[in-house]
Nucleic acid binder design. Structure first.
Lengths: 199, 199
DNA sequence: CGCATATCGTCAAAGCCTTGACCAAATGAC
DNA sequence: GTCATTTGGTCAAGGCTTTGACGATATGCG
């Protein structure tokens, strides 16, 4: 779901609906595009719902959209050509760096649910990249580890993945990258507040 | 897939694998957690693959993980209780703000594929929130619009959604929010470079 | 030691995503 | 006007996500 990259070259939006029913018609004279939609969204939510925290809307909308673009690019150019998926790569990445793990720990480190790790491991096991073994520590657990094939495959994939990451990161200076990471980390720490729902 | 919020309180990782086969064993003495994994990942990829752009790795890893946390929280606390999904909300949001749209335009504005919008519209139509009509402009197109029920439902959901966005955003000052949005926007503009894959 | 409770991984059902394909309609060249 | 090409929406297959449930195993209290 990578959007067109060249705003505002998209064809014109349909004309706004007639006055009366429903929300206030969009006031934009220019056609909306993926890019201008964020600005328009902020303006229009303020009009539709007085009291809207428009800065928060802009923040979350931008965060989600940019992340989606990055992930789509990485998945479609690096991982799908290998017959992999983005979540598959993420699980292989965790096992590559942390070594063999119990499935629950792999779920925790990768930020996936236990059921998602279980289903994903089915796929990766079938591809010969990961193997399951009963855990000596706990009869309920399975220990996931990369096969030799998996080790080689993830090293190769990560090289290409990192090359692509570098292209994305290169649009920011080193200082900007550091600032972005710092602010994202600060945003992420909000999850420690009791109001935020977490697993 | 929201990870535990309280680093590093997670139970200890399994002991590192023995020397020899596979990658260099993880050197960390502390158990890895969702949080410390990012730092560990950066350190260990540099060791596994000399020449790794570790700043890019940190940037993309952090971006993805924080976004995932935010989306999981919004979806599980605001949208799933309504019987909705995150993508469903996003499509409703676009139709709410832009008014009735042809499906292809809705796909464009929301950053989804046409097939994803089609399948999602099936669900929302079944829930009585969206309706399809043939487009007068183009015999191949369908025009998507919110039903009256849909209008009311999205207004109510967005109020709760925005309240939750506000909680997230509140962890940053207004200036920090503006800086984050600006840097994300700059990162997103990288998609205009020809190397980045886009739809 | 017995038993209630918690934990781990998997299962099932339903929804969402991707790619490739198909059919109908639109477009543009000649 | 004809025809090749493009476009729009849907379909199908396969993979990934969620929630709730289940059976096996572990834990801790009395």
């Amino acid at each position: 779901m990578t959007p067109p990259a060249d705003p505002p070259a998209a064809p014109p939006a349909e004309p706004p609906p007639e006055s009366g029913a429903g929300p206030t018609p969009p006031a934009a004279e220019e056609p909306l595009t993926f890019w201008s939609f964020v600005d328009a969204a902020v303006t229009r939510t303020a009009r539709q719902l007085p009291g809207t925290d428009t800065d928060a809307t802009r923040l979350v909308l931008t965060l989600y959209r940019v992340t989606n673009m990055v992930v789509y690019d990485l998945e479609s150019s690096v991982h799908r050509p290998r017959g992999w998926s983005w979540p598959g790569f993420r699980l292989l990445f965790v096992l590559w760096l942390a070594g063999p793990l119990e499935a629950g720990r792999a779920a925790e480190l990768s930020g996936m649910s236990r059921q998602a790790v279980s289903a994903l491991t089915n796929t990766l096991e079938r591809q010969g990249l990961v193997s399951r073994a009963p855990s000596a520590r706990d009869g309920r657990s399975v220990r996931l580890s990369l096969t030799d094939t998996g080790q080689r495959a993830i090293a190769d994939a990560f090289a290409a993945h990192n090359e692509r990451e570098r292209l994305w990161a290169a649009s920011l200076s080193a200082e900007e990258q550091a600032t972005l990471v710092r602010l994202l980390g600060k945003l992420g720490s909000a999850a420690q507040h009791s109001e935020i729902r977490r697993r």
